[in-house]
C-alpha cells in the first residue's frame, strides 16, 4: 500500500511524473490551479508502489510519497 500526495498549487503540468510513473498512477486532471495550470492528479492510486520516481522527477517539489 503506497500513496502520493500532490501539492496542486505547485504543479505546472510539465507531466514528467506522468511520463515516468511505471504504473500509470498519474494523469493530468481537468481542474486548474491559481496559476492556471491543469494540475496532475492520481487516477489509479491503488497501483502505486511508492517508488518515488514521480517525486524525484518533479521540478517543483510538488510530490511527496508514502509507503
Amino acid at each position: 500500500m503506497a500513496k502520493v500526495e500532490i501539492r496542486s498549487e505547485s504543479c505546472k503540468s510539465c507531466q514528467y511524473c506522468v511520463k515516468f510513473c511505471p504504473k500509470g498512477v498519474l494523469a493530468v486532471g481537468d481542474k486548474v490551479n491559481a496559476k492556471g495550470y491543469e494540475y496532475v492528479v492520481p487516477v489509479k492510486m491503488d497501483a502505486c508502489i511508492g517508488c518515488s520516481i514521480c517525486a524525484r522527477m518533479c521540478p517543483d517539489a510538488a510530490i511527496e510519497v508514502y509507503k
Binding site: 500500500m1 503506497a2 524525484r56 517543483d60 510519497v65 508514502y66 509507503k67
Partner: peptide, 18 residues
Amino acid sequence: MEKVYSRTTGIREDMVNG
C-alpha cells in the same frame, strides 16, 4: 504509512517557484 520521499528543507515550502 511511512513517508519515503519528502520535500527537501533546502527550498522554501511556502512559495511556488517562478
